[in-house]
Amino acid sequence: MNLLLLSNSTAPGRRYLDHALDEIRDVLGAARELLFVPYAGADHDRYTAQVAAALKPLGVGVTGVHTAADPARAVREADAVFTGGGNSFRLLKALHAHGLVTAVRERVAAGAPYLGSSAGTNMACPTLRTTNDMPIVQPPSFESFGLLPFQINPHYQDAPADRTHMGETRAERLTEFLQENDVPVVALREGTWLRRDGDRLALGGTEAGGVLFRRGAEPRELSTGHDLSALLTEPVRFDHR
């Protein structure tokens, strides 16, 4: 599989996707047409236009899957697929409604590059259970694409030393997840991404790095460039409901 999974789509002080354009160019390779999945947002046309403008310098054409008469067929015929960020619950509900969970999984397994940012990165996991989003709608299942056998938490934030907010930290939330699910979680700080090329998986992006959470173990800091290929052999230990 050929995957690029971004924690975030916009870096501070930079334009949409600008911080990752070189990596996007690399993952797309010879593909010059990209099918965009805008369902995590409310205005699908505007969202698609934003992506098209960002990728124009790469010579890549962008079509929104929402404009297709048969979205599943459009996915099956796509050169590459990009699922954008927004609300993960709204996104997953639409993916199930249009029959795209299986369609994307099969198209990517057949060799099409897959790009995700934020919610789109969550979709590469077996389920959306490690999203940060509010469940504004209810999908019929938590099952997502399952392009990886482990979970990701995009937009990971460390708790400030002088915090006054008394709610759970992101690390505490992920610890709660691991109390119920024995599945690794890779937490991606802003500006970072995961890149999968076949059987190789590595952490890329800024020096912010990430954190690996496992049940019964202390969180492990991950530096940019860290080889995470061993995670690709992890068994999936929970259902998708």
Rank of each mutant, 00 (worst) to 15 (best):
M1Q: 07
M1Y: 14
S7D: 10
S7M: 01
T10Y: 14
L17T: 00
L17K: 09
L21T: 10
E23F: 13
I24P: 02
V27N: 06
L28P: 09
A31F: 00
V37S: 01
V37Y: 08
A42Y: 14
D43N: 06
R46D: 10
T48Y: 00
Q50H: 12
V51L: 05
A54E: 00
K56N: 14
P57L: 02
L58A: 03
G59V: 06
V60S: 02
A68C: 02
D70G: 06
A78D: 07
A80H: 07
G84L: 01
G85V: 04
S88F: 08
F89S: 03
R90V: 10
L91H: 08
L91V: 06
L92P: 01
L95M: 10
H96D: 12
L100V: 00
R105K: 10
E106I: 05
R107A: 05
V108W: 02
A110H: 11
A110V: 07
A112M: 03
A112T: 04
L115Q: 06
G116A: 08
S117F: 10
S118P: 00
A119F: 01
G120Y: 13
T121R: 07
N122A: 08
N122V: 11
N122E: 03
A124V: 09
P126D: 00
N132E: 14
D133Q: 08
P135R: 05
I136T: 09
F142E: 15
S144K: 13
F145D: 14
L147N: 07
F150I: 06
N153S: 08
D162I: 04
D162K: 08
R163Q: 14
H165S: 15
M166C: 15
E168S: 15
T169Y: 13
T169V: 06
R173N: 14
L174K: 06
T175D: 13
N181Y: 11
D182W: 11
P184R: 01
V185N: 03
W193N: 06
R195Q: 05
R195V: 03
R196S: 07
R196C: 00
D199M: 14
D199T: 08
R200M: 15
R200E: 10
G205M: 02
T206H: 06
T206D: 09
E207N: 13
G209E: 01
R215W: 13
E221K: 15
G225M: 12
L231V: 03
E234G: 09
P235S: 11
